[in-house]
C-alpha cells in the first residue's frame, strides 16, 4: 500500500522573537494541509506565531560519522568565547 501521507517536519517561531525551532513531525497530504495540521497539533498551548513545514524527505542532514571532522575543530577556538578574555572587574560592565 503506497498511499501513506508524506511526513513533514514542523518548525515554529514562538512569541518571543526567537528563530523557528523544530518541534516535531506530522503527516499531511500536501504543504498547505501540513501547515493547518501543524497549527492544530503543535500550537494547542499557545506555542507559536509562525509555522514552517518541510517535507522530511527534502531535508539534507550531516552524517554522524563526520561528527569529528565537522565539530571538533571548533573545540580549540576558545578565543571565540567571551570567557576567554580576562578583563578586570574595575573596567566595568562589558
Amino acid at each position: 500500500m503506497q498511499n501513506e501521507w508524506p511526513l513533514w517536519e514542523v518548525f515554529i517561531r514562538g512569541q518571543h522573537g526567537l528563530s523557528h525551532r523544530h518541534v516535531g513531525s506530522l503527516h499531511a497530504a500536501d504543504a498547505e494541509a501540513a501547515i493547518r495540521n501543524a497549527r492544530d497539533v503543535y500550537t494547542r498551548r499557545n506555542e507559536g506565531v509562525s509555522i514552517w513545514v518541510v517535507e522530511a524527505s527534502a531535508i539534507a542532514a550531516s552524517s554522524p560519522d563526520e561528527k569529528g571532522p565537522l565539530y571538533e575543530p571548533s573545540n580549540d577556538k576558545v578565543y571565540r568565547h567571551p570567557t576567554f578574555y580576562d578583563i578586570p572587574d574595575d573596567a566595568g560592565a562589558m
Binding site: 503527516h27 495540521n37 492544530d40 497539533v41 494547542r44
Partner: peptide, 11 residues
C-alpha cells in the same frame, strides 16, 4: 480517519 484530523476536530 487519521490522527491529524482527530486532533483538528477536537480543536
Amino acid at each position: 480517519p487519521v490522527l491529524e484530523e482527530d486532533i483538528a476536530l477536537a480543536n
